[in-house]
Design a protein around this nucleic acid. Sequence first.
RNA 1: GAGCGCGUAGCUCAGGGGGAGAGCGCUUGCUUGACGCGCAAGAGGUCGCAGGUUCAAAUCCUGCCGCGCUCACCA
Length: 901
Amino acid sequence: MDGGAAAKFEKTYNPGSVEGKWYEFWIEKGYFTAPSDPKSSTFSIVIPPPNITGSLHIGHALNNTLQDTLVRYRRMKGMSALWVPGTDHAGIATQMVVERDLEASSLTRHDLGREAFVNRVWQWKRDSGGKILTQLHRLGASADWEKERFTMDEGLSFAVKTVFVELYKQGLIYKDKRLVNWDPKLHTAISDLEVEQRKVKGRLWYFRYPIEDGGGRYITVATTRPETMLGDVAVAVHPEDERYSRLVGKSVVLPLVGRRIPIIADEYSDPEKGTGAVKITPAHDFNDFEVGRRHKLDEINIFDRDASLNENAPEKYRGLDRHEAREAVVMDMEKLGLVDKVTEHVHVVPYGDRSGVVIEPWLTDQWYVDAKALAAPAIEAVEQGRIKFIPERWKSTYFEWMRNIQPWCVSRQIWWGHRIPAWYGPDGKVFVELSEVDAGAAAKEHYGVDIELSRDEDVLDTWFSSALWPFSALGWPEKTSELRNYYPTSVLVTGFDIIFFWVARMIMMGLKFMGEVPFREVYIHGLIRDEKGEKMSKTKGNVIDPLDIMGTYGADSLRFALTALATQGRDIKLSIAVIEGYRNFMNKIWNASRFLFLNLGGYTPGKGCASEPSIVDRWILTRLNYTVREVESSLGSYEFDKVARTIYQFIWGEFCDWYIELVKPVLTGEDTPARYRTQSVLIKVLLNSLQLLHPVSPFITEEIYQRLRSIGVNLKSPEGGLADSIMVSSFPVFDESECDEEAYALVEFIKEIIAAIRNLRAVVGLHPTTTVNVTLFSTDEKMRGKAESGRDLIANLGRVAELNITRGGKPANAIAQVVGGLEVFIPVEGLIDVSKEIERINRELEKLIKSLEQSGKKLSNRSFIDRAPEEVVEKERERFKELSIKKAKLQEILEALSNIG
RNA sequence: GAGCGCGUAGCUCAGGGGGAGAGCGCUUGCUUGACGCGCAAGAGGUCGCAGGUUCAAAUCCUGCCGCGCUCACCA
């Protein structure tokens, strides 16, 4: 071919001009579509559905890059691969977004009414929801967009209803009146997991409660929440606390309220804490609630849904919010002289993770899932290894939570979400059915007549629908082919922050409704931080926006950087500098390809090769195969950082730095068959390198592959046909027959000789282009033979004019280096700083002597010889010998140097 | 309070019973016919501290110090 195709090769890779084009190409070709009737083995992933209100942040970029890498790899291995994309309806978050929009027109959702509001949310979703999925296109995500799902779409809503009704009928969902974490700002219950415990500086008030008929004596209780005293129903002391034993059974008169409340004995009371006597407010404290139930105490709820005081509080406090009430209560207590003291107190206060306000334990009717019952098989599945966590240590996090799991409050008092399929009769009898019609029928059966029912107002926790995602997204409860072919999914890729929220719940629901785990493996990746290890946030201004990054550096660079950083640790510190480094890598690949195109003169793809591969060819092919093996094994074990490192090292450190350089003379030389052979090896190695890289960096690899195709170079698909795209080409396979250990070792040795020459040249301060005469000295014939076989290579990369390989005399006036059993000399012409060189060699010698001593010590140790494995001892002997030889040679060199001086 | 993790080159991090590694940064030299987003050469580390196991410990165990995360906890 001629230079036509090469002419279009710009000097610098420009990702912006190619990425969009190839994404469209893949879509048009339908390459992302998983076969509904797979003929090969399958691989499937469901995306952790991003929140519809979200836009792509760097965490999504990481999460989806890793998924895409896995999917692309398996696809190239010939598997039928399905990656289901979709979004999550994010109940509270989405409702808040739309309410904020309404605020602009001074409206609340209550002004609109439920139906209109929900319509408004749908409208919002159509306009701006799911933006994040199109942003994933930029990243190159090869998800099957035809199968995109939304947790509120019709099918998933049906799945949610089905699950709810089924669990209810099995007694695993029930309604209960207990304390919940109430968010007084959002007016909804939230689950334990949505509560953030924050350490705050508060105060501890010590209140005196007058003892009834106690002759003016008091019992003093301490509290951080004075306002709750208005709901107190008892004072508890420890049964064995002698300070108070006389008082048990007596009563106190609750100040400000006037209620007579008992002093009770309960082990909950801790003599060490506070005064040892604790006020009991069952309606507003989880622990007190338990105490109350034990002693059959009243539950006096003094708050309304805003956490303002209601009619159960004394009149003067009614309508105050909890903060005002606190001040008022304290002031009034002070007036009565009933405040013993006030101390500074650091304690933990629950905050709503969405609203940021203090959560109030509040007594309400809510729906609960009996998580304990569902957890048992889910724990077992992980114990038995039917689900594997990677890294494995996350297993213990999972177990810890699952073994102490609490009932899961799934009802939310908001409007956006799956409305609970429960209907009530006039007497409050509940009918849980799939539809209003079914509920009506059930009611008729119960009451004997048609009767008007009212539907439960609440919606379900968003995570309830997310928990069904691995099977609902595949079409359950319909018996779809996707479900048949792709469930259980192969792996779930996610961050450790949602192991409880999501992973655990998916496992419970998957086992319950599919009778099978939802995924066989869970790969947990780290969370991305900024370069200082801090969480990225808009307020801190340290956000790295993946869209910006892709604009500047290209999606491939970002993806490669994220992959390289995806170690099995917790935090991933990302900086622009790292991304820039991998952008440079992309450019390196680009230029290696460019070089190839500029040197394809006379090459015809597909034409047989007349010439036997050279040692250098065999070396790079061996190295390539080792790389393939390493990459495949790392992908299999989710060691993404190793995947990236291995590819990087091979392409840059071996292919570009050595193979291309070693082979340049052949490409410009007269030996046509050799040139032809080299061209074909270059192409093979480049192609395979691109394939190895493709799952991580899909765009540049496709761009270069398509350029190769344009000159008639093609890859094969797993089925054996020509691959129209690198993404449907067959991933390279480790091929033992292409490995040549001897050639490999030989070229490694030659590389060392070249490095030694380069080092000496630098010492002498030779200009890179001036040539030099080099003597390679060895008394070992084999060694000289090896050097001889690399003569041209050494001469070329060492810029050697005359290469003398000899066992004869060593040159005088020369400086030297030792490589294995070989001495490398270059003459010293003119002035060099001999003393500096002596110093340098002395330093090397020092290190050498130290290792030699260590090695000698080992070998003279009887127990080492006796107990260490034979091959270790042998290796040590070998090493000792080599070190000794090297030491002797260095000493000779030193001597020779001092003669020059 | 319980659990988990991490302390390795100036920075970010791999590695993991038997010769200290990478990228970035740094120093020196270079219009080397692919690439200065580059090439070549180099400097730089008692692998947190103290014990123990072992023929052998950066690597395994114990303790300590420092840092981080998760869970629990409103007297």
